[in-house]
Design a protein around this nucleic acid. Structure first.
Lengths: 346, 346
DNA sequence: TTGTATGCGTTATCAA
DNA sequence: TTGATAACGCATACAA
């Protein structure tokens, strides 16, 4: 059974396909009221919907945007996906979601596939990788898109020239460290993400900056590089305890790490925030539910992602190539408290 | 700047576009080795990628599938999305993700948009709604797809004739109740999802079935209908306590509800499983991390979603219209224990 | 083994 | 105010 086409509608209405097209798209093109009625009636009667594949071929653009995520089942990316799909709908375009499973090879492949789909633009949601071939390919992709008037926007620094809607990762790392220092903590650990992810390394830099600024010495045994995951935080915290490190505060590079930390501390009957204060970056929904509720620098992912879609769809805006930096206010909850006494060495 | 087309490749290689097309798609069509080389060289040199919008128009199918989710930031749907995108990639198609925000109107609109995109099929991930206009429209959509040889598959019962990859919700509700009864519990509460969602009401039916089967009387004050959410579970548990209900076990219709329950109990210093056993349906990743780790009937969402993509892409299989019912084994963790004494009335 | 020509469903240009 | 027609990029039936 064949789909109903614009021609079917034209035949039923007794007009040309041109007229039908005009009635449907060119809302303000002058068409006789009577003709318009006939056409609309035929459209309804046949339950006609324009074929996007034909429109897209003709228009040299598809009505889709691409979203590249690393792990869509992680609420971090889920929130982004929610915002993107919602805002895309508002613009009347659909969202093609490409989940890489954290494999850069997949990511590169998706770029080509999205290109073939003539997406209006691509939103990158993961942090830039510190690998030459990856960056080269991405750079090439960006150029290709720029040459054709569409855009790749990133929600995390890629270390490349392109539009961003992001946060200041270094400043945020500094901010959460400052927060603990201001509470009187002096021995502060930092549990970071993967070293080769730009976002992660920036947050570490902020941590070090804060220490220096306050005249505190950086202790390498209190810095840990791992994954942005519960397990990584859990393991890192256990190690700190096992090695009997001296500290009273822990900065976590993201919420997931903090969740793991809280569990590890709980298992050892260490009071949070009584003995150790924990702070992180993110503010995922779970952070209000976890015990104790997490003090965290809020990354307004949802708003950022909405804005990223705007940048793609609203390319006319003068600021379309400028970077938008969102603030990351600290949300005070119950996982942090003024310093009383710390852990370790005594 | 124009995209490079098949014609550009043909020109550079000094052959016809037909030949180029054959080299690229029809891997086994006889083409002289020398010609093939020339074409491939030109393809590479021009960095040519076929235009999907043209292919799709020509093929009368697009290389996409649609996924309709209710709340993509919820790991329940996130896991489904992960599986779908992954499996879609395997088949060489992209995934259009449509998130409804739990608004049925959006869902219906997405059906039309996906139709216009000529998706190969649609995967429904939310449970069927008990509303006539919704079901009528969905029914119509299914018919439309059937008439054109593509498929709508559902991961949750819709109360309509269509292929399913799902679980037996009623049996699972019964199973978790049985589990608590077998542990010696007699007063068991059930905290359910929205009454008008088929999935939710089936789970309640299973609960009642189990009670009857064991000669236990159903106590309406121990049954609560709410949302599939943390907040809903939290509130429901608080109410049970506030009203001083007599019970020693709680069955939760999904994991999120159970998380809220655990927090409510913890806040009242009620021991789990010492005083109250908690069991649920789902087994999201967080369930192993929560304190205490949750005993839960495992819904193999990931595998189910993979299979759903197979049903769409592998329509040739004889079982393509049959329902696949996945088992929901109970994963024993620390939130359940044999009955000692319960709560309330005493 | 290769090429020519047609058509997929639209939109837009031009003419009437 | 309306309509005929070219063109978008590709795959395929048919011809050579």
């Amino acid at each position: 059974m064949a789909r109903v086409s614009i021609e079917d509608v034209a035949n039923l209405a007794g007009v040309s396909i041109t007229t039908v097209s005009r009635v449907i798209n060119n809302k303000d093109y002058p068409v006789a009221e009577k003709t318009k009625k006939k056409v609309l009636k035929a459209v309804k009667e046949l339950n006609y919907f324009p074929d996007f594949t034909a429109q897209n071929l003709r228009n040299n653009f598809s009505n889709t945007i691409g979203l590249i995520t690393r792990e869509i089942s992680d609420p971090y990316f889920g929130i982004i996906a929610r915002a993107v799909t919602e805002r895309a709908s508002y613009y009347g375009v659909l969202s093609i979601v490409c989940n890489t499973g954290r494999n850069p090879v997949n990511e590169l492949q998706y770029h080509d596939l999205l290109w073939q789909h003539k997406v209006r633009g691509i939103i990158l949601s993961g942090g830039g990788l510190d690998a030459d071939d990856y960056r080269d390919k991405l750079q090439e992709q960006i150029k290709r898109y720029n040459d054709h008037g569409n855009r790749i926007v990133s929600l995390a620094p890629q270390g490349l020239e392109m539009p961003y809607v992001t946060i200041d990762n270094r400043a945020t790392g500094e901010m959460i460290t400052d927060y603990l220092v201001d509470l009187g903590h002096r021995k502060i650990a930092f549990l970071g993400g993967p070293e080769q992810i730009y976002t992660a390394s920036e947050r570490v830099k902020g941590y070090k900056l804060s220490l220096t600024k306050h005249g505190l010495t950086f202790d390498p045994t209190l810095l840990h590089h791992g994954q942005f995951s519960w397990e990584s935080g859990y393991e890192a915290a256990r190690r700190l305890l096992l090695e009997n490190r001296e500290f009273s505060g822990i900065c976590c590079a993201n919420d997931d790490i903090a969740y793991g930390v809280l569990q590890a501390l709980k298992e050892q009957n260490i009071q949070v925030p009584g003995q150790v204060s924990v702070i992180s970056i993110g503010d995922l929904p779970l952070s209000t539910h976890i015990d104790p509720p997490l003090t965290t620098a809020q990354v307004p992912l949802y708003d950022m992602a909405l804005r990223a879609v705007d940048v793609i769809m609203d390319g006319s805006k003068p600021d379309h190539n400028a970077s938008l930096i969102f603030k990351t206010p600290i949300v005070k909850r119950l996982s942090t408290a003024p310093y009383i006494s710390g852990l370790g060495q005594g």
